[in-house]
């Protein structure tokens, strides 16, 4: 699973999709998830990384990241493999 390569992601969390002209905002954890995904990090490794950095249990992380990815899909921001 990968983030579409033509998405513009700014440091403060603005995302612009040149294909549709839509823009989005993401929060801090969202930015981190986006960065990992665009580097091709797998979900498991991504959750590992978040677990080190944030005060949250693994179950919460998996569930919330899964939800985030679902929304990315819904907005057509992921590459179809």
């Amino acid at each position: 699973m990968k983030v579409r390569s033509n998405l513009a992601v700014s440091e403060d969390g603005f995302v612009f999709d040149p294909k549709t002209g839509e823009s989005y905002t993401v929060n801090e954890v969202g930015i981190s998830v986006l960065q990992h995904l665009s580097r091709g990090t797998q979900i498991d490794a991504l959750v590992d990384a978040l677990e080190k950095e944030y005060d949250a249990d693994r179950y919460t992380l998996e569930k919330t990241v899964g939800d985030f990815v679902q929304m990315m899909k819904e907005y057509n921001l992921l590459d179809h493999e």
Binding site: V15, E22, S23, Y24, T25, V26, N27, E28, V29, G30, S32, V33, L50, K52, E53, Y54, D55, A56, T60, L61, T64, V65, D67, F68, M71, M72, Y75, L77
Partner: peptide, 16 residues
Amino acid sequence: EKKRFERPIITKLNTG
């Protein structure tokens, strides 16, 4: 100390 976790979210901006 670990950072406070906020659920990751992405929100579409409805300009205008």
